[in-house]
């Protein structure tokens, strides 16, 4: 801990400064409110309409406003892929996108994959092949793997590894994830 230095008291903000900051805060909030925009999007087949600040990231909208906590926040710096969702069928990192960009579009999160309690084939393959340990990366990993198989139903091992490059896993060492993607491909081909 830093010792209290002489002159410290004089560095405390004066009442005047606090009042100023308070006013600015109100002005900022009013400005932010006036910047808000109405968005309407479909998430997992359901329509959502909300007013959001343009700076709200899609991942924050999904988790905090719409209540879909399946997509995770891992790095928040566009690297780990834990936040991956499908936007109009394309895998995207929802931490690197504003919610307003998704206006009028269709978002699918991990919660939207199972139908009538039946796991999606990629989810099932992750289960069967033990493709997860802590599970933190799994929602993103599955969304990316799903995209990979949609574009290339019979990928080679190398193509699988190239396809999931944007998703990091700190637990599995990837081998079981690659196995799961292979198994899902084989099952779809059978």
């Amino acid at each position: 801990m830093r010792p209290e230095t002489p002159g410290m008291a004089s560095r405390r903000p004066s009442r005047h400064l606090i009042f100023n900051a308070f006013c600015h805060n109100i002005i900022d909030r009013q400005k932010a409110d006036s910047m808000k925009r109405k968005i309407n999007l479909t998430i997992n087949g359901k329509s959502f309409t909300d007013e959001v600040e343009p700076r709200m990231l899609l991942i924050h909208y999904l988790r905090e406003v719409a209540g879909f906590t399946g997509p995770h926040i891992g790095c928040e710096t566009s690297i780990c892929g834990a936040c991956t969702v499908a936007l109009d069928g394309k895998a995207v990192k929802s931490c690197t996108m504003f919610a307003v960009q998704a206006d009028g579009r269709e978002v699918t999160t991990i919660e939207g994959l199972a139908t009538n309690g039946q796991l999606h084939p990629v989810q099932e393959a992750f289960w069967n092949e033990h493709a997860l340990q802590c599970g933190f990366c799994t929602p993103g990993m599955i969304m990316t793997s799903k995209q990979l198989l949609e574009r290339n139903p019979h990928p080679t091992e190398e193509e699988i590894r190239h396809g999931i490059e944007g998703n990091l896993c700190r637990c599995t060492g990837y081998q079981h994830i690659v196995n799961a993607v292979k198994a899902a491909a084989a099952k779809a081909g059978a």
């Binding site: 394309k90 995207v92 995209q147 490059e165 944007g166 998703n167």
Partner: peptide, 9 residues
């Protein structure tokens, strides 16, 4: 370039 998510956007 990058990864599939980056190439999609």
């Amino acid at each position: 370039i990058g990864d599939v998510q980056v190439r999609n956007m």
